[in-house]
Design a protein around this nucleic acid. Structure first.
Lengths: 230, 230
DNA sequence: ATCGTAATGCGACTGAAGTCGCATTACGAG
DNA sequence: CTCGTAATGCGACTTCAGTCGCATTACGAT
């Protein structure tokens, strides 16, 4: 999961014309790229409470007042950085088996947020995003995009006949990854590879049982059929 | 899930002698109670970024400098408020059926965080806790305590023969509640009753399949062998 | 009742976040 | 090339979070 911005290099002019400014190809774009890059670098280094408008201004070479004018504050900087990351394409596994695909996805999440090299930026970014409405909205969009992309894994499983028709693919993804994010961003508990695997397996199991189908195949998936009692 | 402090009423002297101060029964205790109560009230009213040391000082009648001396800042206030909530006993369902117990638990979480009357305090408290090391530690302790308490639901199921021996009860609870917290505190998506129910059902299903047993009953609950490659 | 000590009250001080008005620069159109 | 305009640079100013030294109060022990 890449949260780095597309705009790291000032030489890419109009990748993200979200604010259709009258000067999309010139200095404004350069400024935006520099600022987003500086924001990501700062947030990775100092964490989200160490994130300062002055530091971003100093690092990017853009005046502090400009930051406040264009982004309205730290919140906007974070939101913009997140938005820039949202439409990043994302390599999806396609092993032909839902459980294995989900395992790879949760494994990927695990890797990113466990690797001290990669984790700081996305971790700080997600934490920072929760602090403002703008950030929260950007974060919601970000995850919506991710869920939508990753849902393909489940949709392929439906096509294969592995999952019941009408299965909500995004919901399968949420089920698989939620336990990881829950530990990372709510309880603060440690994360291990086995947890990642179990989460994927549990999601695959529930999906196969039809729990994520719009009209559940079997509303009460326990009781009679499979009661693996001991 | 009650996150309110035990120390709302200044007339309870030594309920929480965490800091074994030389004067546990006197003014210090009163001050702490007032401050914790004021913190909860403030955080509920103004959210976690509206939480100000000065406001807490004003509301509690305690000087600002005292707050910084005893609690070290907003972080400490939040952490203390959380700590005070951690050992609150918590009514557990006991319906004789794991799935139903889990449903009631997730339903309870859903209710608390959906009800505009109850949600502000715990929501803001959890968000605020993630902003500092002290808060994060207190939050971890809080959830550890909650998981441990709620694990009884799974342990009873083991006793009943409903779940395989060696099942990690806390893990079952985490699996059941994670999707809710994931939406509430990570993605910011809306939460509905059906999601709560599905999460409980999925957790029950996975638990019955032995996914949360220390030595999984059936490590690969689907397909025959596991050939990770295609 | 008295005294020593710790905790609190108090107000001034520091530093940084965020704002404002104005000067300057750079883009884009003609 | 020239000009109009929008964006940025600039520095001072306001505001508030957080700190410090000292005076005062209240607790607990003798």
């Amino acid at each position: 999961m890449r949260l780095e911005s597309t705009l790291n290099e000032p030489t890419r002019p109009d990748q993200q014309p979200r604010t259709p400014s009258p000067r999309p190809g010139g200095r404004s774009a350069r400024v935006r790229a520099d600022v987003v890059a500086a924001t990501l670098a700062e947030v990775a280094e100092k964490g989200y409470d160490g994130l300062t408008a002055e530091a971003v201004a100093a690092r990017s070479g853009v005046h502090k007042a400009t930051l406040y004018r264009r982004w309205g504050g730290i919140d906007g900087l974070v939101a913009d950085a997140l938005t820039a990351s949202a439409d990043q394409p994302w390599p999806l596994p396609d092993t032909g088996d839902l459980q294995e695909d989900l395992r790879r996805i949760t494994q990927e999440v695990f890797s990113v947020f466990t690797d001290p090299e990669q984790s700081p930026t996305p971790t700080a970014l997600i934490s920072a995003a929760q602090r403002s409405d703008a950030g929260a909205a950007a974060l919601r969009d970000f995850f919506t995009a991710r869920h939508h992309q990753a849902a393909e894994v489940a949709e392929r499983a439906v096509t294969r006949g592995e999952l019941p028709a009408g299965t909500d693919g995004a919901e399968v993804i949420r089920a698989a990854t939620a336990p990881l994010y829950y530990r990372l961003f709510v309880t603060g508990e440690a994360l291990d590879a086995r947890t990642a695997e179990r989460a994927a397996d549990a999601a695959a199991l529930a999906a196969r049982a039809g729990l994520f189908a719009s009209i559940p195949t079997d509303p009460e998936p326990d009781t009679a059929p499979n009661t693996p009692d001991q």
